[in-house]
C-alpha cells in the first residue's frame, strides 16, 4: 500500500494506492500538489489494480468508477476529485480554461476542448510564461485572483517543433501528460491577479494570429458559458461572470502558428 497526500486548493486528499504502479501514475499527474502526511484529509480515495488489467477507483470506501486503463484512471480521478473540491471551495468560480502567469499577472485561455488550449499553454510555458493550469482556472470572486491548479499538462497529440515534449511525459492510450518536473521553468505556486482573458479560435487559414477586444457583455456571456460551478454563486453566477469580465482585458485571439501566437500574447500583455 502506497499513500499519496495531495493539497488541492487547500483541500487535503488522501489516495491509498494498492500498488506502486497506480501510485506512480497519480504521482506523475499530481506531483505539484503533494504535501506532508500529518494532516487529516478532507477527501479519501483508494485505487486498486484489477486482473484483467484495469483499476478500481473508490471514494470514501465505495466504488466510484472502474477504469479500463491508465487514461481512464487519470480521467475519472480528475473528474471526481475536481467535482468534490468544487463543493468544498464555493468561494471560487471554476472556469474551464487554461491559466498562466506572466510578470506576476494571470491570463486565461478559454476555448472548447480540443481546440488547442493545452498546446498553446505548452508553447507559452516554453516562452517564459509560468504554468497555473491547462484545464481548470479557479478564480476567487472577491479578490479576482487566479489560483494555481498545476496538474500534469494534458495533450492529445505531440505539439509541433520546436515545442517537443520532455522525457518525463506519461503516454496513455489517448493522452500525453507532462508532469511539472518536465517543464523548462518553474510553475506558479501562488494565486495571481487576473489581468486578461483570451478567447481562442483556431484558424489555420487566417494567416497571422490576430487579437481584437470584445465587449464586456460578450466576455461576460462567454465567461458564463465556460464556468463550471455557477449554482454555487449568487444569482446563478451571473454577477460573478460579469465581475470577472469587468475587471479583465477581454480579447478574441485567432491562433495558428504557435510561435507567433505566443509572441502576440506577450506583446498584448506588455501594452
Amino acid at each position: 500500500m502506497k499513500i499519496l497526500i495531495l493539497r488541492v486548493l487547500e483541500v487535503v486528499i488522501r489516495v491509498r494506492c494498492a500498488d506502486p504502479y497506480s501510485y506512480g501514475l497519480l504521482l506523475k499527474g499530481y506531483s505539484a500538489f503533494v504535501t506532508g502526511s500529518d494532516v487529516e484529509p478532507d477527501l479519501e480515495y483508494s485505487v486498486n489494480s484489477l486482473d484483467p488489467p484495469g483499476f478500481e477507483l473508490l471514494f470514501n470506501n465505495e466504488l466510484a468508477q472502474t477504469a479500463e486503463d491508465e487514461y481512464d484512471l487519470i480521467y475519472y480521478f480528475e473528474k471526481h476529485m475536481t467535482m468534490e473540491v468544487q463543493k468544498l471551495r464555493q468561494d471560487l468560480l471554476f472556469m474551464h480554461a487554461a491559466a498562466l502567469e506572466y510578470n506576476g499577472r494571470a491570463l486565461l485561455l478559454v476555448a472548447p476542448s480540443g481546440s488547442g488550449k493545452s498546446t498553446t499553454t505548452w508553447a507559452l510555458i516554453n516562452s517564459g510564461f509560468r504554468y497555473l493550469s491547462d484545464e481548470l482556472a479557479p478564480i476567487h470572486t472577491g479578490t479576482l485572483q487566479v489560483h494555481p491548479y498545476p496538474h500534469a499538462l494534458c495533450l492529445k497529440a505531440e505539439p509541433p517543433k520546436p515545442f517537443s515534449l520532455p522525457d518525463e511525459t506519461l503516454h496513455t492510450s489517448y493522452t500525453l501528460h507532462v508532469p511539472v518536473e518536465g517543464f523548462p521553468g518553474d510553475w506558479g505556486r501562488e494565486p495571481a491577479p487576473l489581468a486578461a482573458i483570451f478567447f481562442l479560435r483556431y484558424d489555420p487559414e487566417s494567416g497571422e494570429p490576430q487579437v481584437k477586444p470584445i465587449s464586456k457583455g460578450e466576455a461576460g456571456a462567454r465567461i458564463y458559458s465556460n464556468a463550471l460551478n455557477l449554482l454555487a454563486h449568487a444569482r446563478y453566477g451571473l454577477d460573478a461572470a460579469v465581475k470577472v469580465a469587468g475587471h479583465s482585458l477581454c480579447l478574441e485571439l485567432v491562433t495558428n502558428d504557435l510561435r507567433k501566437t505566443c509572441d502576440l500574447i506577450k506583446s498584448t500583455l506588455q501594452h
Partner: peptide, 15 residues
C-alpha cells in the same frame, strides 16, 4: 429572468 447590465449591454439569463 436574471438580468445584469454591462456597460450599455445587457446579459439575460433564462434558466
Amino acid at each position: 429572468l436574471t438580468v445584469q447590465s454591462v456597460d450599455e449591454e445587457t446579459l439575460i439569463l433564462d434558466l
